[in-house]
Design a protein around this nucleic acid. Sequence first.
DNA 1: GCCCATGTTGAGCATCTGCTCAATTGAGCA
DNA 2: TGCTCAATTGAGCAGATGCTCAACATGGGC
Lengths: 193, 193
Amino acid sequence: MARLSGAERRRQIVKAAYEVIVEKGLGYAATRDVTRKLNVGSGLLHHYFPGWRELRAEAVRTFVLAEIEDVDRMLAGAKDDDLVHSLTAWLADDPGGQHWGLWLNAIEEARRDPQMASAVKEAYRTWHAVLVRVINRLVEAGHGECPDPAASAWRLSVLMDGLAGILILGEPSSEPDYAKRLLKEQFAMELNT
Amino acid sequence: MARLSGAERRRQIVKAAYEVIVEKGLGYAATRDVTRKLNVGSGLLHHYFPGWRELRAEAVRTFVLAEIEDVDRMLAGAKDDDLVHSLTAWLADDPGGQHWGLWLNAIEEARRDPQMASAVKEAYRTWHAVLVRVINRLVEAGHGECPDPAASAWRLSVLMDGLAGILILGEPSSEPDYAKRLLKEQFAMELNT
DNA sequence: GCCCATGTTGAGCATCTGCTCAATTGAGCA
DNA sequence: TGCTCAATTGAGCAGATGCTCAACATGGGC
């Protein structure tokens, strides 16, 4: 196996851990899944991380925050008229609900794992800030009015988390269009349109 | 250990399994937690259930549906004016978000476990029907109007699932009042009040 | 070209997991 | 009283888990 620099190997391990976690779930993914995927000895993982829980938490923190920043950039580059549509499309762009599944899993895991709780809370607040910005942009662009952007953003955020259930279960419809429609109507309600 | 009738023992095991699952999470609860809690040999569990996954799924199905029926009865006995308040109080009556945590957990587990998926979908539809009935009662009692009760019920259902995150994480506030407020405002919006 | 800090290995331990199966117990009927 | 069958036991297996540690390998700096 090629010998990598410490920082590079660390990043590689975190990435592999995230993929494994998304696939198998936080409660079932194991260190061996990660080392096998990288063709690497089991000791290497513990050379970089004090334990599996730490690695898990770092993987979730890193990649969830990266995803949020990606969406934020995408929205920043979108026209005001396309904001809601872009967000809606992004919500449903998750075949099998894999990433949304991990997100629900991480929220629940936060009950038991303080490091996971810290990672999830950071993502929670960051995502809320993104939604507040979206709402403010829409209001400033004359797409409606919103008396309490913070509350509206929490409601939208929380609704999207719940829509994950619809995407995962395929209920009431296996087409993600229904989830999209519910989110769009929520935006309309929040903006008094 | 006292010897029980088959049906009685079965019920006892399902109940203990549910309690263990709520406490430790679907991915960490083990058959031994159940047998230890009941002071019972490990073979007994497999005498009544083909496997741990079957028992888990039956426990979730049984107790989640029972909880939904409880709420339904409670709402049926409430005055029209108290409907939203009762539902809101029930939402937040879950110290540490234990039961809501299990619910999120079960939704995510449905991705991997078909029997869990079947149980969760049944609860999902049953709960939606309860909310549709609530909405219709409110409309008939003159508390507002609702052009699409089915969509509104899905939005409320999904919002409540998401509010579980707020209750579990204590974010943005560790007081459950904020979650209650968001839900009440959602009802107001859905009913055009 | 040597040398050492550092990346890397993997056998192995203690512990846990779900599940099997031959053996034992006991309640209720005849 | 005895018999029968269902309820119950628990040691034990095969496999998985996180993590340790002594040993090995190698690339960059001298």
